[in-house]
């Protein structure tokens, strides 16, 4: 039997062009999103300047190197706003209103549908600002072309790790229908990634490396970018990303067994 299959990329493209169209309805929001990114960045930089206290370096990081961390964080923040929040943030709603039924009935991978259905353009300013800041600060810290190229690996791993963490937490709403804010907790903890992990005391550092792997989200990519990366950390970040991605997929399938579609 032959059947027509829309190419995956075209499907995602269609999803995203319609959701951008929906979002563009809100003009004031566009201005606000830019302000939001700007102030967010300003807040982080100001906080970091207080921590540095005018000194040339803190906890082994020079000012420009620390700015690379901020840049990477801003990119991930943009990714969160553009992709994670409009999609994974909606899973709770799907479960509550029983519309997850429709998703499961579609002849497309449910995980793909739930993860790519929406795209919010209001994450774009963050991505643009983040990429700009990262490049500028990395070059100022003496990064070469090889460092930039190599950093793509831990950066991609960071994106996959962040996505998988979000997806696992969002999936728990299949059991805990009322939990809106579980991803909000993750967002708060990820905030710790605004600063290099070495600015934290030992206990915090352990927590942000092994329990909530914030260190792999911003510090490892930033170290690679400024030419301080170690193969061991890069390999660990790729391994972690792969592991979490597989775990997220398995967890979702497991959770679906407990899905009882809402009664009304």
């Amino acid at each position: 039997m032959r059947r027509h299959r829309t190419p995956l990329l075209r499907l995602v493209g269609l999803f995203w062009s319609t959701s951008v169209a929906a979002e563009m309805e809100y003009r004031v929001d566009f201005v606000l999103a830019v302000l939001n990114s700007g102030f967010g960045l300003l807040t982080t930089i100001f906080g970091l300047s207080l921590v540095f206290g005018g000194g040339p370096s803190f906890a082994g990081w020079s000012w420009h190197q620390a700015m690379v961390v901020v840049g990477v964080f801003t990119i991930l923040e943009g990714f969160t706003r553009a992709v994670l929040e409009p999609n994974l943030g909606q899973i709770v709603r799907h479960v509550q209103q029983g519309t997850l039924d429709f998703v499961l009935l579609k002849p497309v991978s449910a995980q793909l549908w739930l993860s790519t259905r929406g795209l919010s353009p209001w994450g774009f300013p963050d991505v643009v600002l983040g990429v700009g800041l990262t490049l500028w600060a990395a070059l100022k810290s003496g990064a070469g072309a090889a460092d930039l190229a190599l950093a793509i690996v831990p950066l991609a791993a960071a994106v996959v790790t962040l996505y998988s963490l979000w997806f696992v937490l969002a999936t728990t709403s299949i059991w805990f229908v009322k939990i809106y804010n579980v991803t909000q907790v993750l967002r708060t903890l990820v905030e710790a990634g605004r600063y290099p992990v070495s600015v934290y005391p030992f206990g915090h550092r352990m927590f942000f490396t092994f329990i909530v792997p914030v260190a792999f989200l911003t510090t490892v990519p930033a170290e690679t970018l400024v030419g301080r990366g170690s193969w061991a950390w890069i390999a660990a970040s790729v391994g972690l990303a792969a592991l979490l991605a597989l775990a997220a997929r398995a967890f979702f399938r497991f959770a679906l067994r407990f899905y009882t579609s809402a009664s009304s």
């Binding site: 951008v20 169209a21 563009m24 566009f30």
Partner: peptide
């Protein structure tokens, strides 16, 4: 998309 941008 064109309608969206024009509307924007």
């Amino acid at each position: 998309v064109v309608g969206t941008l024009r509307h924007f």
